[in-house]
């Protein structure tokens, strides 16, 4: 009985050691320890929230003439970082896409072809072309609570073959900056 109990005790201890991470330190580098090494995925989140707003949600150039450059003022719009972290903002658009219209082609001025560009308040027009279907950098490291004034220019087609209304939607995309 006493001998049997010693065996039982020994087996129990070995089983406990093989199931525990300390087994590796004690030289039990068996399967149980190998399995434990796959448990090391870590995940952390940066506290804080991302939020931006633009003072205007729409703008209308009205009737435009062929081969002209219509623009807002350089401080026509104002985007504000409402979040708790500094952000980078990119800008893009979806091209001329008004339902029910014969849409222009998005690109540098041509026949039924035009595009938008933007400039920050410290810059000048024509500024940077707003790409369709992709983005470009708009403003980097906009601190939380800070604002950036900006404006838009329309590089209108140099000729029209129709007078259908046109519409393009600009999207400002905010994400935490690299150092935030």
């Amino acid at each position: 009985m006493r001998k049997g109990f010693k065996w039982l005790l020994g087996i129990a201890l070995v089983a406990i050691l093989m199931l525990s991470p300390v087994a590796g330190l004690l030289g039990f580098s068996g399967m149980a320890f190998a399995a434990a090494t796959t448990q090391n995925v870590t995940i952390n989140a940066t506290p804080g929230w991302v939020s931006i707003s633009n003072n205007l949600t729409t703008f209308d150039f009205g009737t435009v003439l062929a081969d002209t450059d219509e623009n807002t003022t350089l401080n026509g719009f104002n985007v504000t970082n409402e979040g708790s972290v500094a952000c980078n903002i990119t800008i893009g658009c979806n091209g001329w896409a008004k339902d029910g219209s014969t849409n222009w082609t998005y690109g540098a001025a041509g026949s039924n072809t035009g595009q938008l560009s933007f400039a920050l308040s410290a810059g000048s027009f024509p500024g940077t072309t707003i790409p369709s279907g992709s983005t470009v950098s708009f403003k980097t490291d906009l601190d939380n609570g800070a604002s950036q004034q900006w404006g838009v220019q329309l590089d209108a087609p140099n000729a029209f073959t129709h007078g259908d209304a046109q519409q393009d939607t600009i999207t400002l995309t905010a994400a935490m900056n690299a150092t935030g």
């Binding site: 090391n40 995925v41 870590t42 952390n44 940066t46 979040g83 935490m176």
Partner: peptide
Amino acid sequence: NIPTSNTTTDGQPPVDRTWISPAKVQIGNF
């Protein structure tokens, strides 16, 4: 091992602004 949310924030985000959180998630040893 499936880590779960444990985010804390300093201060409260605004009620009348649309926001998302967290700003950044880092996954290590994946």
